[in-house]
C-alpha cells in the first residue's frame, strides 16, 4: 500500500514511479492513493498506508515526533508556481511576498486549495511571511479540493492560485493560466518526504528505500516522458 500527496498523483508522477518499481520487481503490487498530505499522514497514523509521500513539513514534524516513522527522508524536490490569468505576469513581479502583497492590495481573485495539503500549508506560510491574513477577504476563495479542480476554478474565475509545478504543467495546455515571475525561485522549492510507517512489511520498506535511492536515476527520464521538461522533479540533496 502506498499513499501519496495529491500533487504527485495529480501530475501523474506517482503512478509512473509505481509502474517502474513494479516492472523491476515482478509480483509486487503498489496501490497508489491520492489524498492531501494531512489525510495521507492520517492514513499512516491509522495504519492504512505504509509508505507516505508528503510535502507538508509542519505536519510531517508532528508525525515524526510521535515516533511513527521507521525511517523518513526528503527524496524528491519540485517547485511551487504562482499561476494566474494571462496579462498579470508583467504586473506582478518580485519576491513571493511582494507579489502576494500586490494581489491583496489590488484585490485580485485568489483561489486557495484550503484542503490541508502540502501546497495549502505552504501557501499559508507565504501569506504569513507577507503579513497578510487573506481568510474571509472577498477576493480570496477556498475550494477545499485537490490541485486539479482548484486549477480549473482559478482558470474559469480568472484567479491566481499557488500550484505545484508538475500538476500545473500536466494541465497547462488546456487552461488559460500563465506562471507568474517570482524571484528568487529558491523560495518556491517543494520538498517531498518519503516516510515508512512503523510496523510496515518488508515489501513496503523495499519500495520506500527504492524511492529514496533510485530517484536520481529514474526522475530525468520520467520528467521528459511525462512533462517534456528536464528538471521538473529532482532528486533531493
Amino acid at each position: 500500500m502506498v499513499a501519496a500527496g495529491t500533487t504527485l498523483v495529480d501530475s501523474g508522477l506517482m503512478d509512473a514511479l509505481a509502474d517502474q518499481y513494479e516492472s523491476a520487481n515482478p509480483g509486487v503490487e503498489v496501490s497508489v492513493v491520492g489524498e492531501a498530505s494531512a489525510q495521507v499522514l492520517e492514513l499512516g497514523r491509522r495504519g492504512a498506508a505504509d509508505v507516505l509521500v508528503t510535502h507538508a513539513p509542519a505536519l510531517e514534524e508532528l508525525f515524526l515526533a510521535d515516533g511513527l516513522a521507521e525511517f523518513s527522508e526528503i527524496a524528491i524536490t519540485s517547485d511551487f508556481v504562482l499561476v494566474g490569468p494571462p496579462g498579470l505576469e508583467d504586473r506582478l513581479t518580485g519576491t513571493i511576498e511582494e507579489v502576494l502583497i500586490e494581489i491583496a492590495a489590488a484585490g485580485l481573485q485568489f483561489v486557495s486549495r484550503a484542503d490541508g495539503s502540502g501546497t495549502n500549508e505552504r501557501e499559508i506560510l507565504f501569506w504569513e511571511a507577507a503579513g497578510i491574513d487573506p481568510s474571509g477577504e472577498p477576493w480570496y476563495r477556498e475550494t477545499g479540493q485537490g490541485m486539479g479542480l482548484t486549477l480549473l476554478v482559478a482558470d474559469q474565475r480568472s484567479a491566481v492560485t499557488l500550484s505545484e509545478r508538475g500538476s500545473f504543467v500536466a494541465v497547462a495546455d488546456r487552461l488559460g493560466l500563465a506562471p507568474l515571475d517570482v524571484s528568487p525561485s529558491a523560495d518556491l522549492a517543494n520538498p517531498y518526504r518519503v516516510t515508512l510507517v512503523v510496523g510496515s512489511s518488508d515489501a513496503a520498506s523495499d519500495f520506500a528505500r527504492w524511492l529514496i535511492d533510485q530517484a536520481p536515476n529514474v526522475l530525468p527520464d520520467l520528467n521528459r516522458a511525462l512533462f517534456g521538461e528536464d528538471d521538473l522533479y529532482r532528486a533531493a540533496g
Binding site: 483561489v111 484550503a114 476563495r141 477556498e142 475550494t143 477545499g144 479540493q145 479542480l149 480549473l152 476554478v153
Partner: peptide
C-alpha cells in the same frame, strides 16, 4: 462538485463539504 467547485461560502454544500 464538478460544476460548483466547493468554494467556501459560495458553492460549498453539505455533500461537497
Amino acid at each position: 462538485l464538478i460544476v460548483g467547485g466547493n468554494i467556501r461560502g459560495e458553492t460549498r454544500v453539505l455533500t461537497t463539504a
